[in-house]
């Protein structure tokens, strides 16, 4: 089979429910292990050593759903320890994926398994669409001022040098609108399997640039973990 045929097959093929859950658990093992190692550099061994161990078990497929349920309990303990998410949206997405996968494993019938994964898929679509919607109705985003402010004075740019981008208003205006439009049209990608894969590639690129500009590396890894749910959902519904 040629590379071109392989690529075409990858772009058009969907996933079964079992495959999607398997991929998500594997990706999640890596993403949570990465988060845990960063935390261990700071302390909190009581939480993050067991968390790392459970990631290893889940990656190896040992213990059925127990490592997943264990990770869910630890994520709840983390919410208590930090009195909210430690890393904002990335911790929320971690907990959301763990909750949906945990429920899928607890589900008494395939129907409820599908419901749990569908909920995650819908939330993933909303994570882009709502984010685009709140920007497009805001005059500051429409004028390109908001993205300038992000670079000008927000806490996110990873170096002072990046603040100079605030002096390129036309560039930021175009980039701001590109992000808004991409987020708003993202749900339309569900209509076609190839369009969805391409949209997910663009979305991964968007998270990668956020990681480079704003240091949001955990967002990149954890959003990737939810993508198999959407690939399954698209194949199942459309």
């Amino acid at each position: 089979m040629s590379v071109q045929e392989l690529m075409q097959q990858g772009l058009t093929q969907g996933l079964t429910l079992g495959q999607a859950m398997g991929w998500m658990q594997l990706l999640l093992s890596f993403a949570i292990a990465q988060q845990s190692l960063e935390h261990l550099a700071r302390g909190d061994r009581m939480i993050f050593v067991p968390r790392l161990g459970l990631c290893l078990l889940m990656a190896l497929g040992v213990g059925g759903a127990w490592p997943l349920w264990g990770l869910w309990v630890i994520s709840l303990a983390m919410l208590w320890r930090y009195q909210g998410p430690y890393n904002g949206g990335s911790d929320k997405m971690t907990m959301l994926i763990l909750s949906c996968l945990s429920l899928a494993h607890l589900a008494p019938t395939p129907f409820w398994q599908e419901m749990a994964l569908s909920y995650l898929a819908v939330q993933l679509v909303l994570s882009y669409f709502v984010s685009g919607w709140v920007k497009v109705v805001n005059p500051e985003w429409q004028r390109g001022e908001a993205l300038r402010d992000v670079f000008r004075f927000s806490a996110y740019p990873v170096s002072e040098g990046l603040r100079e981008l605030a002096d390129r208003p036309r560039f930021l205006f175009v980039m701001g609108w590109a992000v808004i439009l991409f987020e708003l049209v993202f749900p339309l990608a569900l209509l076609d399997p190839v369009a969805l894969k391409l949209a997910l590639l663009c979305a991964a690129g968007f998270h990668f640039s956020n990681a480079c500009f704003f240091g949001l590396n955990r967002f990149f890894w954890i959003w990737l973990c939810a993508y198999p749910a959407l690939i399954w959902f698209q194949d199942r519904i459309f």
Partner: peptide, 25 residues
């Protein structure tokens, strides 16, 4: 309190950068 911390993670608002609020240092 635990429930109030947990619920926003499973019913998230996803309003990233809705506005650029005053930024703390």
């Amino acid at each position: 309190r635990l429930l109030s911390l947990f619920l926003p993670t499973v019913i998230p608002s996803w309003r990233f950068f809705k506005t650029v609020a005053p930024s703390p240092r």
